[in-house]
Amino acid sequence: MSEPRLDVRKTYKLLINGAFPRSESGRSYKVFTQSGEFLANVAQGSRKDLRDAVLAARGVQAKWWASSAYNRGQVIYRLAEMAESRRDELAVHVGAAEGLRAPEAFASVARAIDRIVWYAGWTDKITQVYGGANPVAGPFFNFSLPTPSGVVAVLASQESSLEGFVDAVLAPIAAGNTVVALASELRPTPAVLLGEMSATSDFPAGVLNIITGVTSELAPTLASHEEIDGIDLAGVGVDQASELNVIAAGSIKRVFRPRQNDTDPTRRLRAFIETSTVWHTIGQ
């Protein structure tokens, strides 16, 4: 009889600039399953971690937007391929975090992966659907192009640990933004897993940065950070959202607050797009 094998346990870390550091603060916090069992110690990110993440996101944003829309689509599709091959693991974590039975958890993961595929197809459609030529009066060629806002902070849904996270981070990324995301505070592990997958999906380092930690502690830093151009407030309640909105106004951020029972999946996609219009003369 061989002795029973001891599991190798995993450390859940942050994702900053393509690397997986622990929090610079050295802190972590305990995360439990829905039924109250210990799941993992998760890095408790600090304001300095956020600062590093924003620096990374800002640094790579122009490069991400400059890569072809086709290329960005392939990178996001690659994430779907990675997620598909680790579906079981994702389902275990979504189930534990959200208290779902296996079939429900698997269904949630499947929807999340299909959603990634959906966003992969958007990268080269956004310009065509939301841009266009304008028939101005006069000898001018005039066209409007959607461009990304820049760096977007995401306060991800506290409840929907994977589906909600996927939506909130991929909408701005598909549009050419880079993201600093704060994962669900109590249900962070599916987001951490997705971050690991993104690191093997040809995402340039810094396009997606994921911080785990205490939302109330970190959210104001994100809302006030002047290098951040937009913020998605999905993960905070109405009162806190209003407060953060006021802080965000300090640097004229684009603010997205999800509506209840929203049926338009493009609202989030449009939230962090600017319109840039070019005039050019026409003449012999």
């Binding site: 392939q74 959906w118 197809g121 459609k125």
Partner: peptide, 18 residues
Amino acid sequence: AAHFFYYAGWADKLGYAG
């Protein structure tokens, strides 16, 4: 390949094609 990739993206977005 790019052509298939591009139109793959349209298959679930036909309602946005105008």
